[in-house]
Design a protein around this nucleic acid. Structure first.
Length: 293
DNA sequence: TACGCAAACCGTA
DNA sequence: TACGGTTTGCGTA
């Protein structure tokens, strides 16, 4: 009700919020059948849409043509995101982010972690309000506590129930209250790059194991348009040989997108996995590529 | 170069 | 104990 429809930007979402569904299928097609390099025409045909219509939807979503998008998610580009040198630490990225003159917007976040005791309670004594909202990556499930955003997940068409359960079981002892009026402002803020600013940072609360929280904090240091490997993260938290455990922790990240787990790649530059579907990881990377230009 | 495969690595449930 | 959103090394096209 309180959603304002003023500034129209490239990231605005259709009323039905269904752009992503189309986009998702396009991405799947061009990545699955990349060998044959399907043309816009053939893709459109398979989707039962006109090429111009498809082009329009895709570009509205990403600010990028399907062709340019495909380029943005190739292995070659992924390697560029990783950067030449594996050594430069993530430590300074916040600093750079705040003062760098040429830097494009990124979502600013202040975070706090739950104490180990609170974690052991498995959410006991915690009230979590939640709601579903359309987003550039499909229907988003937003979960908040008094201390800030605690969870963000994505549902495929009709998968809302599964999505909710996936999240709710992480903190089984919490009390859950449906309250999309309360969560709506969060969704609006997160998915509108125009609202990202360091004056109005997003409050986030990390609920997890000590190890997991350290990994997630590392993820938060990756700037927009950059990527790191799992072993980079392992080194950053001071356990250089734990890259595999890091991978598991990254996979358990409850605040998808905001804690940019999609910016973690395999050492080869390959997209190794994503809890909410590899296609969505590709979508996020491509979408971010467009934000940069 | 590009894979396939096995072995070492480590925090969770 | 088993199981991953990993890596690395080594052998084969």
């Amino acid at each position: 009700m309180t959603m304002l429809v003023n500034a129209v930007s490239a990231t605005d979402i259709t009323p039905e919020g269904s752009d992503y569904e189309t986009v998702r299928r396009v991405i799947e097609m061009i990545t699955n059948d990349y060998r044959e390099q399907p043309s816009l025409e053939t893709i459109a045909e398979r989707l039962g849409q006109s090429p111009t219509q498809l082009q329009k939807v895709f570009t509205r979503w990403a600010g990028l043509s399907p062709k340019a998008f495909l380029q943005a998610v190739t292995l070659d580009h992924a390697k560029r995101l990783l950067g030449q040198e594996r050594l430069p630490l993530l430590e300074t990225s916040f600093e750079v982010g705040l003062s760098g003159p040429g830097r494009l917007h990124d979502l600013f976040v202040t975070h706090e972690a739950m104490s180990p005791g609170e974690w052991k309670a498995r959410g006991g004594g915690l009230t979590i309000r939640y709601g579903f909202h359309p987003s550039p990556f499909g229907l988003a499930l937003v979960m908040i506590t008094e201390r800030g955003l605690a969870g963000l997940a994505f549902a495929d068409l009709g998968g809302e129930r599964a999505c909710y359960e996936d999240m709710a079981q992480r903190w089984p002892n919490a009390t859950y209250v449906e309250d999309s009026a309360a969560t709506a402002p969060y969704a609006a803020h997160i998915f509108d790059p125009g609202k990202w600013s360091c004056e109005q940072p997003l409050r986030v609360v990390l609920i997890g194991t000590d190890f997991q929280v350290r990994v997630w904090e590392s993820l938060l240091k990756i700037p927009l348009g950059k990527a790191v490997t799992y072993s980079d993260l392992a080194r950053d938290i001071g356990q250089p040989t734990a890259s595999r455990a890091v991978g598991a922790a990254v996979g358990r990240n409850p605040i998808s997108f905001v804690v940019p787990c999609h910016r973690a790649l395999g050492k080869s530059g390959a997209l190794t996995g994503y809890h909410w579907g590899l296609t969505r990881k590709r979508a996020m990377l491509g979408w971010e590529a467009a934000q940069m230009s």
